[in-house]
């Protein structure tokens, strides 16, 4: 036996022994780890106003950020205990897989391929793909995009599928210029490098409203009729976290449906109907089944508000974005959102 072979066999022996001990540990849910750690690690985008962007004080603002806060309120009882990790499109899935973040809430469309890699919990926003163009160029419909230059985020963003479909449908080619950040792509479009900038609908509205020098110069159009269901996602194989994320989001919709708001939640917890009282802390069984405090749903509403409040605060009429809720209205108002029953 040569010396090298000896060394290798020793190494292998040692390796097997160590592998044996480390496999013995029992799998713990992220919910327990989040409690022990005292904060929730959640995704941030690279800065999309209305969805997730730090404000001038460095506090993350936006719809996606508030969804993170709701989950932190449910698990930790404190909506401020969220650490936001800014990620680009290519980083976000590996960040979930490697455990860098606990919850992905960052305009991520649910697709089959992605659902095989991470676990999508629930759709929080229904969006579409929007093309921004300059009014002066006269590109009034997608059919006029042939031969035009389009700025976009690379790295496998889903808006690319919408462009592929357009090219196939109209038998033309577009010149695509990719950037690693949607922010660079946007700024490059605004600088005049491209005729169009393509991104998610809500992001497009917020970019025009808050970043464009003269919002009136730009117009938007849907690239196709595809719906982009944006959801929250977690690592695979964590049922406990799945429960917490799904039912926390359900609290937001349920509260809107039943008119429970940040302002009246205290009153509702005392004087609401039987179901409302049970969910807002009267029946500890809801929280206990998920390993949470009995006040978990109350904390979510009290600290973050219901779905409508989150929407209005970040994207609604009182913000520069003034986004149309469209498909994100409650089913009773013509949208796709409805609460799941509790019992």
């Amino acid at each position: 036996m040569t010396r090298a072979m000896k060394c290798i066999s020793i190494g292998l022996l040692l390796g097997t022994a160590l592998a044996g001990c480390s496999n013995g540990a029992k799998k713990e849910s992220l919910v327990e780890k989040i409690k022990a750690r005292g904060n929730l690690n959640c995704s941030g985008s690279q800065g999309i106003p209305g969805l997730s962007r730090p404000d001038e004080k460095g506090i993350w603002r936006g719809f996606d950020s508030d969804v993170c806060r709701a989950i932190a309120a449910a698990i930790l009882g404190d909506a401020t205990k969220v650490r936001f990790v800014p990620l680009n499109a290519a980083q976000r899935l590996p960040a979930v897989q490697t455990g860098e973040i606990d919850i992905l809430s960052r305009t991520t469309t649910l697709t089959f391929t992605r659902d095989m890699a991470i676990r999508f919990v629930v759709n929080t926003l229904y969006d579409g793909d929007v093309v921004i163009t300059r009014k002066a160029d006269g590109i009034t419909e997608p059919a006029k995009l042939g031969g035009r230059t389009i700025c976009m985020q690379g790295g496998g963003s889903l808006v690319e599928n919408a462009l592929d479909e357009l090219e196939e449908k109209h038998k033309f080619k577009m010149k695509r210029v990719y950037f690693d950040s949607t922010i660079t792509a946007r700024d490059t479009y605004f600088a005049g490098r491209c005729d169009a900038y393509v991104t998610d609908g809500l992001a497009a509205q917020s970019q025009i409203a808050t970043v464009a020098k003269n919002p009136a110069e730009h117009s938007t159009m849907y690239a196709g009729d595809a719906i982009e269901p944006n959801g929250i996602a977690i690592p695979r194989g964590d049922d406990r976290l799945f429960d917490v994320a799904r039912w926390t989001f359900n609290v937001l919709i349920w509260a809107e449906k039943n008119g429970i708001t940040q302002a009246n939640v205290d009153d509702m917890a005392k004087n609401g109907d039987a179901v409302t009282k049970r969910i807002l802390g009267g029946d500890p069984a809801f929280g206990r089944s998920m390993g949470l405090d009995s006040k978990w749903a109350y904390n979510v509403i009290k600290q973050v508000g219901n779905y409508k409040e989150i929407w209005d605060r970040n994207l609604g009429e009182n913000t520069p974005i003034k986004a149309d809720r469209r498909l994100n209205k409650l089913y009773s108002e013509g949208g796709l959102m409805f609460p799941l029953p509790w019992d």
Binding site: I10, G11, L14, G15, S22, N23, A25, G99, R236, G237
Partner: peptide, 22 residues
Amino acid sequence: LLLVFGAVALVVATASANLADR
């Protein structure tokens, strides 16, 4: 040498356990 191989083996073992875990 033992130390180096041990460290490598530890890394491999932890990594494969974590992979299986996730």
